[in-house]
Write a protein that binds this DNA or RNA. Structure first.
Length: 547
RNA sequence: GGGCCGAUAGCUCAGCCAGGCAGAGCGACUGGCUCUUAACCAGUCGGUCGAGGGUUCAAAUCCCUCUCGGCCCGCCA
């Protein structure tokens, strides 16, 4: 037995190197054609909205593929959408191709409900934009991978059945069904004498059935009986018919090894749910039933979202497209480059922490800061897999400050504020500035979404304010000072204190007045640098309560 | 009940394979910048490495037992 847990050890600074070693060892074995490209696979059922956690299935394999390519191998990254699986229950939430999540009530749910038990590719697309339910969600999987900069070859499981690719394996399993049955019985109690490792599709109602009554060379007879699944019963129509070996599916425990064989899979990552169930039986089936060498396995731990399990039914999901509204792709990739053996929480409230961690990682890589040897080595090894064209001159504005810059939509003002705060160096060219400010969009979205302390908005017009005479006079004095002295940020910051004292206005209250005037908030960023960055005329009018 | 994986500072995580001073960042706190507020600088605090035992000159690291959490051991995938 091959343990799927032992690959991601710490022999390397990057776990993908350890996995790549195991793959290289495998392809060196004698039964494998050394010239054939290495095949890395992942796969999920297009059962509903593919969420951020599902991307483990894409990203973990991706890094291993990239490491192997770096070592000079030709690598195919194949991804099966297990779209011949039957629709078992209706998800509570769906999503259109533009990433908008909608409730089940917003589509024709009854049209879905009547299709329970059919393969995803035989269920109509509730949005009407793709050929089937399965195609719809496979398309979103493809888009999600694209957004993360990962190139995968998506293979439809249904196609593999219909075009005959699977047919020899299906025949093999049926011919050796006694052996298949004995083998699976070691893992599943319910496998009995009547078990046949093939589920035909009913020609009458289209459901995937479980009752095979006879097996011939190129076809099976079946009766469409009730199917129990997930505590509910999907009624069979009672039809008796004959199905070819292309008109049905292998049970998952057999289907997985069938994919390995037909696609020539060398490496496959999978979630921990498979580690103690599907993997041992799949490995056994591959070796002893099919006579194949199973791929190198790797288990990854699951992510949680804001502390709770990802759950489509509970609605605790976030899609890749949503995440990329909040984070740059390289930061997302960084998250997936961490040790897969560790369960991780994807905490939206604290994305700033993740971004800060990435920024530090980047600075370690470009040598801008010095860290401990270990973290420096990790950065040197892993960073190139996160960013296509590492740029030592890349300017990163801290994420939280970028969120603050989102208070205005004026890009010129954003640049001025960033420059004056020292986050953009004086000699930065236009291209660097644009790249540095790109993050503002995501950071602003984050601040708005979480409505946190960085969610400021520049008050476009004079807020409804009422100040006492001393404060009003002090503000007017401040305006005069700004007009006369064109002060830099620090001078202005100092003068705010000075003027508050002169007018015997409490310093805290005076600052609060400033924040009220410009942000309509009681607190805000450091006022001197903030006002210094704003358009002078605008500042003068506002301080004089004129607009 | 049996099996697998995980647990290191308030938070996010390195370190474990192959034993050698308990680490980083962030946060917090203190101080600095004429200055209670984003930023910046300096410093401080912060640990029963989940618990207990064993091996060892030496254990976060190796071994055993236990606790807690997740997953698997029905079906399905």
């Amino acid at each position: 037995m091959t343990s799927p847990h032992t690959l991601a050890d710490r022999r390397y600074d990057f776990w993908a190197d350890a996995a790549a070693d195991a793959v290289e060892e495998r392809i060196g074995s004698e039964e494998r054609d050394p010239d054939a490209p290495i095949v890395i696979k992942g796969g999920i059922s297009p059962s509903g909205v593919p969420h951020f956690g599902n991307m483990n299935e894409v990203m973990r394999g991706h890094f291993v593929a990239e490491v192997l390519r770096e070592r000079g191998h030709e690598v195919r990254h194949v991804f099966t959408t297990d779209d011949r699986d039957p629709l078992r229950k209706l998800p509570r939430k769906l999503a259109d191709l533009d990433g908008n999540v909608v409730g089940l009530g917003e589509v024709d749910a009854s049209a879905l409900g009547t299709n329970l038990g059919k393969a995803y590719t035989d269920v109509p697309d509730p949005f009407g934009c793709c050929n089937s339910y399965g195609d719809h969600f496979s398309q979103i999987i493809r888009q999600s991978a694209d957004l993360l900069g990962v190139d995968i070859e998506i293979v439809s499981n249904t196609d593999l059945y219909e075009d005959g690719t699977f047919e020899p394996v299906v025949r093999h399993a049926l011919d050796d069904r006694a052996a298949a049955r004995d083998l699976l019985a070691e893992y599943q109690d319910k496998v009995d004498e009547s078990y046949v490792p093939f589920n035909p599709i009913c020609a009458n109602c289209g459901k995937i059935t479980e009752t095979v009554t006879d097996v011939a060379d190129d076809a099976v007879d079946y009766r469409c009986t009730d199917i129990e699944a997930g505590g509910q019963t999907i009624e069979g129509c009672g039809h008796e018919g004959t199905a070819t070996l292309r008109e049905g599916k292998l049970p998952w425990r057999f289907e997985w090894p069938a994919q390995w064989r037909t696609l020539g899979v060398d490496f496959e990552p999978f979630g921990k749910d498979h580690a103690e169930g599907s993997w041992p039986s799949g490995e056994h089936i591959a070796r002893d039933l099919l006579g194949d060498d199973p791929p190198v396995p790797m288990v990854y731990e699951w992510f949680t979202l804001n502390g709770d399990a990802f759950s489509s039914s509970e609605g605790n999901v976030v899609m890749v497209s949503e995440v990329l509204d909040l984070l740059e792709p390289e930061v997302v990739r960084y998250f997936f480059a961490k040790n897969p053996k560790r369960a991780r929480d994807f905490d939206i409230e604290r994305l700033d922490q993740l971004v800060d961690e990435f920024d530090r990682f980047e600075r370690l890589y470009v040598g801008e800061i010095d860290g401990e040897e270990q973290e420096r080595k990790r950065a040197e090894r892993i960073y190139p897999f996160l960013v296509a064209d590492p740029d030592a001159d890349r300017v990163r504005i801290p994420y939280t400050f970028a969120a603050v810059l989102g208070m205005t939509d004026d890009s010129g003002l954003r640049e001025t504020m960033a420059r004056r705060s020292g986050h953009i160096p004086a000699d930065a060219d236009a291209e660097q500035v644009e790249a540095a400010l790109a993050r503002v969009e995501q950071a602003r979205n984050w601040a708005v979404r979480t409505d946190n302390a960085y969610n400021y908005r520049l008050a476009e017009s004079l807020p409804d304010v009422e100040f006492d005479d001393a404060t009003t006079n002090a503000l007017a004095d401040l305006a005069d000072f700004v007009e006369a002295a064109s002060p830099d940020e620090e001078t202005l910051q100092g003068e705010i204190y000075e003027i508050a004292r002169e007018h015997e206005v409490d310093v805290g209250d005076f600052f609060a007045a400033g924040y009220r005037l410009f942000l309509d908030e009681s607190e805000g960023p450091r006022l001197g640098p903030f006002l210094a960055a704003l358009d002078t005329t605008f500042v003068l009018d506002r301080l004089r309560l004129e607009g």
